[in-house]
Amino acid sequence: MNLATLIILYACVGTGCAVVALVRGRASWSSGGDAGLLLLFWPLYGPFVIVRDREPDGRGAGDLQLAETLRLARRTPLAEILPDEAAIVRLSARVIEVSQNVSEIDRLLNDKAMSELAAEERQRELEAAGNARAAHIVSLRREQIARLRALRGRLLHELNEINELLAQLRVQAELIRLSGAPGHDSRELVSEIVFRVEGLSAVTDVLPDPSVSEERGGRGIDGL
């Protein structure tokens, strides 16, 4: 294979990546030449534009497979302590929903309008220009973006922990299959997983209420 063939192959893969990104709406020529960058530097830029598509089904980020793991464990002596099929479906749907929320937040945070750095820069510009009122509005926007980022962090943290517990359950299930009846720690592990999944909704509850923040923001603007 000579250099010309390599360049042609490279360009073909790059073109493919750019087309996929354009078709899926991940890139556009107008938004800073994403497609152009993909075409030229797909080995480096591809993971940020193409791979993101794997996340919405909840398996891209953490390879989270709750239903599969629990069903696998039901074929072992652990079955007696596992939730029934309806509960597995419900728990799995909850995990997938939260994974999709994380992907949605990622998509939002990738938006130019949601850039914390851009907002910070804008706030500095407005402050330098002496426009305190507009600068305050931008600071409120920054707060909202920070809340979104914090929510993403907490959800991801919870999902990662659930993922690790599932990995542990898989190992424990195999051990029990080969060694005998489940012990007390297995029951605790299953309870912990169910508790964590059902408690996912609480993650969003502990964050400050957006309406409170908006109200605070409203007062702040009025008070200027």
Partner: peptide, 14 residues
């Protein structure tokens, strides 16, 4: 490392 840096950061670095 926290995963906050995204496509915009990659694009900027490129």
């Amino acid at each position: 490392e926290s995963g906050e840096a995204t496509a915009l950061t990659a694009k900027t670095l490129l």
